[in-house]
Nucleic acid binder design. Structure first.
Lengths: 230, 230
DNA sequence: CGACTTTATATCGTATACGATCCTCGGAGT
DNA sequence: ACTCCGAGGATCGTATACGATATAAAGTCG
């Protein structure tokens, strides 16, 4: 076979169905906070934007509905899911549990390459300017540490929870200056991993997530219309 | 307006879209183990069964895919998701964490009506004949205990995890006689709630879930083709 | 002049239709 | 006889089309 054919074959699509492509793009947009909570997602509009019909768009939205990022209103379409402060609090509480578990399992097993990678993410994190990049690096830092646990399902569950609250965390980070404390806690966590100390890694991780959760809930309670859920 | 109109209005549908109806029914069938892991779900067939077109069927399957109960194979359709023993082990480990947390929060707050309801479910559980009814009562028992925690998200996450492994648990219960030990553990858990003892409730719940998980993993490791993931 | 009904329009939810991809089975070649 | 290949059929993925429902605007009555 000629090299031309190979060339064509190599770039022959991301091997992604239209439905999956739309789902991934919208998911990212929601997580990044580009779409406001409660915003209506008009199917025809999205379909036109991606140059597909409504069918794959609806399939994508159904997927995101099950993931908890979108809510369907009967005969009124889909909106970006919004979380009450109580719900955010619950998610952060669960994250604290699972991430502490992952840290405990991973700390004794982590290797030097993973530590170096985490350290690199930490440095990049300190230099990152916008909240978008910050969110990405924050996840990279933590997931790098958790990977050594060899628990893909646990990691996936953590990521799923993280996705649901990430846009709120980012909004907070953009408005308040939480970076110094965050960086300090990250450094302490990394140090616990360097020492391969499971108890310290777990407890510091737990406290880190709960701190972020408390800070977030406080902020939202202040800035939302008194009883507000939105 | 006449009473006839009111009558019609009152029974005017389950207010459920075709897509949601199909999703719920298939989800139940998978959880109940009526559909074997790995089984192909043919869209035309399902559509004919429900007397709808493929569109709502595909939306339902996309929903279940995001929930982890179904897997799509590009241009080959959807199959019932199957779990390796390692994945089941992970899910049970996470369940143990979350259910222990729910038990700890709930135990000090639980009221007499909830305790009475849990006791009733426990009795029914002892008399239940088939695995299907057993699974339902088992969930009712545990969820009744957790409800007092006032943590709907936590409860929903637990239910989601439970759904993913329930068919495997049921298969085990049907084949082995695990009921006596299970009943004994349930009684001990209920007793801890009666005493409003958070530590005991949490630890007994944790052990209960981990026991079930270990038993399940052992069984599957014995009965699956040596390296088997299915 | 305001509240209720009615009509219009936009958007949703689903059925039908069709090209694309993959599996099956039979035939040619070694 | 076995392997490789291609035509046929089945199933998937998506575009188009249409009835159903909700929101908004206009009209009517008190």
């Amino acid at each position: 076979m000629s090299s031309v054919i190979e060339l064509v074959a190599s770039q022959k699509m991301p091997r992604l169905s239209a439905s999956d492509h739309v789902a991934q793009t919208i998911e990212q947009a929601i997580v990044d906070g580009l779409l406001a909570a409660g915003e209506l997602l008009r199917q025809d509009e999205i379909a036109a934007h991606f140059q597909v019909s409504k069918i794959p768009v609806r399939e994508a939205l159904k997927h995101l509905e099950a993931k908890g990022l979108v809510t369907f209103l009967r005969n009124r379409g889909a909106v970006v899911a919004s979380l009450s402060t109580a719900e955010i609090d619950e998610y952060m509480d669960i994250r604290a549990l699972l991430e502490a578990r992952a840290a405990r399992l991973s700390a004794p097993l982590i290797g030097e390459p993973a530590l170096a990678a985490a350290r690199a993410h930490l440095d990049d994190f300190g230099r990152a300017a916008n909240a978008g990049r910050w969110g990405e690096l924050n996840w990279l830092f933590h997931s790098t540490l958790y990977a050594a646990a060899g628990r893909p399902i646990l990691l996936a569950e953590i990521r799923s929870l993280y996705h649901k609250v990430e846009r709120y965390v980012r909004a907070l980070l953009s408005l308040r200056n939480e970076m110094p404390r965050t960086q300090h806690e990250h450094a302490a966590i990394l140090d616990a991993f360097v020492r391969r100390d499971p108890d310290a890694a777990a407890e510091l991780t737990r406290a880190h997530v709960l701190d972020a959760g408390a800070s977030l809930v406080n902020y939202l309670n202040d800035h939302r219309s008194k009883g507000g859920n939105t």
